[in-house]
């Protein structure tokens, strides 16, 4: 059946959305663990720095030094690339599908979260690059010391504009996950109408938890709780 070729699946609009949903789930898995890991900063410098060290030994003795970490990084890079590729292709297609705009525009069900998926996604993507340059590669960090994760974090968040950008990014991430968390269930067709409202509430709770969980670290540094 030529209709069902896998290639034509990734070419189809629904296939692209399924790719976004699956890569989105991988992203959700990552940020959940990342947020949890960040909170270890409250336990103290030694603990936090050791956590960063031990991450490189993840999966030992089966995996060698930093092997498991790199496998996860490659999966994440591929996921972000596919997610952004599908988002871009669908955005272009949607623009083509409505070449002439309405003079009067009104929406009934769309909300800030659903309307901000694309531009919010762009900001999140820029943030990911910025965040890597800031704390991973350190090339835009004022006083980056490799391996001194706690120090890098505390110095990094002493700069107010930086904290503001982080807060904006994690708020947009929250909105992205609020709509995305529900939307992916619909895309994957695993949403039973009976649980629709529960899934929406679950997505809202999850999104709020993520935003607060990420926001609390820069705020704690800014207000001197972590120093």
């Amino acid at each position: 059946m030529q209709n069902l070729q896998v290639l034509s699946f990734s070419r189809s609009t629904i296939g692209k959305k399924v790719i976004m949903a699956v890569t989105g789930v991988i992203g959700i898995g990552f940020i959940l663990v990342h947020m949890y890991g960040n909170l270890k900063v409250f336990i103290g410098p030694e603990y936090f720095n050791a956590y960063s060290e031990e991450l490189r030994e993840l999966g030992a003795p089966i995996f060698g030094h930093a092997h498991a970490l790199w496998i996860m990084r490659l999966i994440l890079i591929a996921s972000v690339a596919l997610h952004v590729w599908a988002a871009t292709a669908l955005t272009i297609q949607a623009r083509k599908a409505r070449p002439d705009q309405y003079a009067v525009k009104r929406t009934l069900e769309a909300n800030y979260a659903s309307k901000l998926m694309r531009w919010g996604g762009v900001v999140i993507f820029v943030f990911i690059l910025y965040h890597l340059m800031h704390f991973t590669w350190g090339n835009i960090h004022p006083d980056f010391i490799p391996g001194e994760v706690y120090h890098n974090l505390v110095v990094g968040f002493q700069f107010l504009p930086n904290v503001i950008f982080y807060l904006i990014a994690v708020s947009l991430l929250g909105l992205h996950l609020y709509h995305g968390g529900w939307s992916m269930m619909q895309t994957l067709g695993i949403l039973s109408p009976r649980y629709d409202q529960a899934v929406r509430r679950g997505a809202a709770a999850f999104a709020l938890l993520m935003t607060l969980g990420f926001a609390v670290v820069p705020l704690a540094v800014l207000f001197g709780v972590v120093k």
């Binding site: 609009t13 669908l90 297609q93 949607a94 599908a97 929406t107 769309a110 659903s114 529900w182």
Partner: peptide, 12 residues
């Protein structure tokens, strides 16, 4: 040449 769905819910 229709666009893809982003689950805004405007259609319904």
């Amino acid at each position: 040449g229709f666009g893809g769905c982003t689950n805004h819910g405007e259609c319904s």
